[in-house]
């Protein structure tokens, strides 16, 4: 997948690039609207990550023009302005998603995946997890042919960890994904533990869950499957 990162704050652009490269995306960078439009003209992108607060032009104008040249691409607006009008306008102009800054890179990747499934019709095969298989499309966890009942939030949690498997996810990252970044002011929330405990309990009734690891003092991680 080819991604254009349009972001005037260079340090930030490099971090996003570094992260996405690790996840096997091919990245280009543009630091202003002029550059961005030029690159969109020359290349075909699957994803365009667009900051609205660009030095030379409003990001929404870039979105409008880029949509004409590269209509296939999925646009994700990334902004620190974060006012409601921008969001509404952005989505009206055909943006696929909107992430207010500061966002988690893991969340960004999860949104990109969701768009890929929705927009590009990419079908993930059922993923094997120990003795279980997880179908992200149908949102079910199977042990052979028996379905293991998980609540909506439990499934979200499991699939998020699965997407970022072999990487430790902190409680903050997990709770931000489940409950959003804003509503909760309990920064030291351990409520994620309750959910993980429930997931373990439900799954271990069917088979071993030793692939779901607790990393002391950090968070949780799904070990790489062979």
């Amino acid at each position: 997948m080819k991604v254009l990162i349009v972001e005037d704050e260079k340090t930030l652009a490099y971090e996003v690039e570094a992260f996405l490269k690790k996840a096997f995306y091919v990245c280009d960078l543009a630091h202003n609207a002029h550059q961005a439009l030029e690159m969109i003209d020359l290349n075909q992108y699957d994803f365009i990550l667009l900051d609205l607060g660009l030095p030379d032009k409003d990001g929404l104008i870039v979105l409008e023009q880029a949509k004409k040249q590269n209509s296939e691409a999925a646009f994700i607006i990334l902004t620190a302005r974060g006012n409601i009008e921008d969001r509404v306008k952005g989505l009206d102009l055909g943006a696929d998603d909107y992430l207010p800054k500061p966002f988690s890179l893991l969340e960004l990747q999860s949104r990109m995946q969701a768009i890929a499934r929705r927009k590009f019709g990419i079908k993930d095969q059922a993923i094997k997890l120990g003795d279980f298989s997880v179908d992200l499309q149908k949102r079910v966890v199977l042990r052979d042919t028996t379905e293991v009942e998980l609540t909506r939030k439990e499934f979200d949690l499991l699939s998020y960890m699965l997407l970022h498997k072999n990487r430790v996810l902190t409680r903050i990252q997990l709770s931000e994904h489940i409950w959003g970044s804003f509503v909760d002011d309990d920064y030291d929330s351990n409520y994620i533990d309750v959910h993980i405990k429930n997931i373990r309990k439900k799954l271990s009734a069917h088979a071993s869950v030793d692939w779901l690891e607790t990393v002391r003092g950090v968070g949780y991680k799904i070990k790489k499957q062979d």
Partner: peptide, 19 residues
């Protein structure tokens, strides 16, 4: 707004570093 951008950079750096 001015605070959000540096926070954003720091958060992404920490996330990358942890991996």
């Amino acid at each position: 707004h001015e605070l959000m951008t540096p926070i954003s950079i720091l958060q992404n750096k920490i996330e990358n570093l942890m991996a």
